[in-house]
Design a protein around this nucleic acid. Structure first.
Length: 574
RNA sequence: CGGGGUGUGGCGCAGCUUGGUAGCGCGCUUGCCUUGGGCGCAAGAGGUCCCGGGUUCAAAUCCCGGCACCCCGACCA
């Protein structure tokens, strides 16, 4: 320990907010070099190496072959795919001495597709699965949470090349299984969820989420069946339509009441009886979005409805210019604006809306009778309690950290880059591709978000930087020191990754550091247990404390670690 | 990029309003003491007060310009 390059911090650096960021800094795993750029110290390096090792084993087992690709990439291949202009500010760009343009690779579809397109001629060579584990660079608008959202990060990416959709499906399924094995082997609780494929393209996509209360992603999942999705993607079974009411619309005076809860309380009705009208400015003109009072807008889905055109909420002034008083907006009588209604709104038999007149709402509004939207599209965010789209049981929400994402890309890149092979009929066809990423550095952070307490990190055994720390309570006591040192040497000899805390520090300091760094097992050699010829054992994850006879310690320690591993394997169903 | 905030020994901060000597806690070094949960005592080392310009006899402090970093938002693995 005295030789290990680790400096723990007693006080929390002011810049750290999230648990993983704070603990990685405090426990001496990382140091910041610039915003979103970190130096990884020896402890972190060991964790990353362990994660990478499991990833390599599973990628190889699934038929992947590792390559190293350039981080510095010429602009021309990005121009060829059309992404040089599309990628925008997020790409680090630079020029060489001849003024040629380059970028630091934010991802590697272009490089790999160009490579394979130049090399692979025949369907007989397919499928081909190539992967890399390397740094990637993205000039994030706002790096944050330490290593969770940094500008330089380590990522594993595998690209699959198949001859057709069936081949892609096989590759995709193989990767899905490999990913499930990886996160299980790392000792992490995770969930695979259906995801929106976003900017990278393609139709089908799954994210692998490490479950953690501090995670930034919301997962919606079914308690009864296997359905789980990113909240952005999640669906709910359609609302049951109510019989339309035959009451007539009537204005009510609602002075200064602009929000759904206020109006509902004032009128003495549940907020589900209200329709809220959101006004957006978009690249295609103004849009009014109608949602049930208790629903929230899913901006990703609205984006799809708008075919990816940009949009933002209208300001009070902009809405007023269209004759819409924000807070009192309603669909009835709206002119000159595209109206998009969520199906849940259309299922309402009678509702309360804004009256498009300051300080007035309208009750007795019947959707379909008193207003007709231009489009009925699902734009609400699925939420806890909604019926599952598969089985109807109530949905629940969880938080998670996205650590893996798998996509079916299809022929998007192979067509753009003219990467083709010859099929058995002699025809040139574009490769059908998939891409499968794992954030290695982010996985380290996610593991902490899932496993920590007040005192520090509780590393899952498979990725802990070391497995065991041996602490002599007093290194100046010859008996303790000799026993501890001997124990340390025999553990190492037995293949246990062990650290000896040989520092002449007070026991409290050593215990605190051991808890902070998160060694899964702590063996204490001190006067209490030594008197009985025992060593004291503390399991960091469970907090259990017990003792082993010193003479049996090595054997029992190995056995204990083996049992921990076996439990993980069992839980993983491996 | 919009809004808010911060830059003072390694870390956490005070001092700035009202200009004049740079201070506290932790850490670090040395000695004594102590050894089962970040002991105790004593003596030390360590600072371009983010950078540049201006005002002034005098600037950490006031003014102007820049840079860096953090938080909230839009964006994302």
């Amino acid at each position: 320990m005295s030789k290990l390059y680790v400096r723990t911090l007693r006080e929390v650096p002011a810049e750290a907010e999230t648990p993983s960021h704070r603990l990685l800094l405090r426990a001496g795993f990382i140091r910041k070099t610039a915003a979103g750029i970190y130096t990884y110290l020896p402890l972190a390096r060991r964790v990353l190496a362990k994660i990478e090792r499991v990833v390599r084993e599973e990628m190889d087992a699934a038929g992947g072959q590792e390559v190293l690709l350039p981080l510095l990439q010429p602009a021309e291949i990005w121009r060829a795919s059309g992404r040089w202009d599309v990628y925008g500010e997020e790409m680090f760009r630079l020029r060489d001495r001849h003024d040629r343009e380059f970028c630091l690779g934010p991802t590697h579809e272009e490089i790999i597709t160009t490579l394979v397109g130049n090399e692979v001629r025949s369907y007989r060579e397919l499928p081909l699965l190539l992967y890399q584990i390397q740094n990637k660079y993205r000039d994030e608008i706002r790096p944050r949470f330490g290593v969770m959202r940094s500008r330089e990060f380590i990522m594993k990416d595998l690209y699959s090349f198949d001859r057709d959709e069936e081949g892609l499906e096989r590759s995709y399924q193989a990767m899905f299984r490999a990913y499930s094995r990886i996160f299980a082997r790392l000792g992490l609780a995770f969930r695979a969820v259906e995801a929106d494929s976003g900017a990278i393209g393609g139709e089908v996509s799954h994210e692998f989420m490490v479950l953690a209360g501090t995670g930034e992603a919301t997962i919606v999942h079914c308690r009864a069946c296997a359905y789980a999705a990113n909240a952005e993607k999640a669906e709910a079974a359609p609302a049951v339509p109510e019989a339309p009411s035959n009451v007539r619309p009537e204005e009510v005076h609602t002075p200064g009441l602009r929000s759904v809860p206020e109006v509902a309380a004032f009128l003495g009705v549940p907020p589900t009886r209200l329709i809220k009208t959101l006004v957006y400015i978009t690249a295609r003109g103004p849009v009014a979005v109608l949602l049930r009072g208790t629903d929230n807008l899913n901006e990703v889905k609205l984006g799809h409805v708008l075919d990816g055109a940009w949009f933002r909420p209208a300001t009070e002034e902009e809405a007023a210019a269209m004759g819409i008083p924000l807070g009192f907006a309603g669909p009835a009588g709206l002119q000159g604006i595209r109206i998009i209604a969520d199906p849940a709104v259309m299922a309402m038999g009678e509702a309360i809306t804004g009256a498009n007149r300051p300080d007035y709402h309208l009750r007795g509004v019947v959707p379909g009778r008193d207003f007709r939207p231009d489009e009925i599209r699902t734009v609400r965010l699925a939420q806890s309690g909604d019926p599952c789209p598969r089985c109807g049981a109530p949905l629940a929400e969880q938080r998670g950290v996205e650590v893996g994402h798998i996509f079916k890309l299809g022929t998007k890149y192979s067509q753009a880059l003219n990467a083709t092979f010859q099929d058995e009929n002699g025809l040139q066809r574009p490769f059908v591709m998939g891409c499968y990423g794992i954030g290695i550095t982010r996985t380290m952070a996610a593991a902490i978000e899932q496993n920590y307490d007040e005192e520090g990190i509780k590393w899952p055994l498979p990725i802990a930087p070391y497995e065991v720390i041996v602490i002599p309570v007093n290194v100046n006591d010859a008996g303790q020191w000799e026993k501890a040192h001997a124990l340390y040497l025999s553990l190492r000899e037995a293949g246990v990754e062990t650290v000896l805390d040989d520092r002449d520090e007070r026991p409290g300091v050593k215990f605190k550091d051991a808890d902070l760094i998160g060694f899964p097992l702590r063996l204490t050699v001190g006067p209490r247990s030594l008197a009985e010829g025992r060593v004291e054992v503390k399991d960091r994850a469970t907090g259990e404390v017990f003792a082993w006879p010193l003479t049996e310690a090595v054997r029992l320690c190995r056995h204990y670690l083996e049992t921990m591993r076996a439990k993980l394997q069992e839980r993983a169903g491996l």
